[in-house]
């Protein structure tokens, strides 16, 4: 079974974000159809939206439902559906050029997430310059400029988190 747990989404009580390992599903974005019971829940309107992120799936419940009563059912359906990743169909078809876009999405997830929070909490500024051919380039400014720990932060925190999401990463470069 895929490890997953639900997290609330800020100020959106109807949404629930199911956190799971990155790359569980081969695409990101809106889901057109999902396999099994989960697909039926989406078709019958119990779930109003299904969105795949790099390391999560967000489900939205119809206004009449409640997570306390229907959450357990949705979880079992999600577990079953994740057992059949080929049965998931995205709204936007996957094109060959999306590998760079996926890498960029992963990089943004890291830089806006907890690792980015850590850098910002120390007065640093980090931004994505490019993501191409499994190489990510970032720019570090703010208090990061001239900081002797910048190499450590980059490799121990940013690169590690990024490699978790995108195991094919070849290099992380700072400019």
């Amino acid at each position: 079974m895929i490890p997953l747990h639900p997290e609330a989404v800020d100020s959106r009580p109807e949404a629930l974000r199911w956190v799971m390992p990155a790359g569980t599903l081969a695409f990101t974005g809106e889901v057109r159809s999902a396999p099994g019971e989960l697909g039926r829940l989406a078709e019958t309107g119990v779930l109003t939206a299904l969105t795949v992120e790099v390391a999560a799936v967000t489900t939205c419940l119809s206004a009449t439902g409640s997570w306390a009563s229907q959450g357990a059912f949705v979880r079992s359906a999600l577990h079953a559906a994740l057992g059949n990743p080929a049965g998931w169909v995205p709204v936007l078809p996957t094109t060959p050029g999306t590998r760079d876009a996926d890498l960029a999405a992963c990089a943004l997830t890291v830089l806006t997430g907890r690792v980015g929070d850590f850098i910002r909490s120390h007065g640093g500024v980090v931004e994505l310059v490019s993501a191409h051919d499994d190489v990510v380039t970032v720019r570090l400014t703010g208090s990061c400029s001239g900081c002797p720990a910048v190499g450590f932060t980059l490799h121990a925190r940013v690169e590690r988190a990024l490699r978790d999401l995108h195991p094919g990463l070849r290099a992380l470069v700072a400019v």
């Binding site: 079974m1 895929i2 747990h5 609330a8 390992p21 959450g71 357990a72 979880r75 577990h79």
Partner: peptide, 23 residues
Amino acid sequence: RPVLDPPTDPAELEAWTESILLA
């Protein structure tokens, strides 16, 4: 408070636990 109770099914509970530890 958590939005949803942790699962009771042993396999789902294991997946939940593993996911919490990963997170």
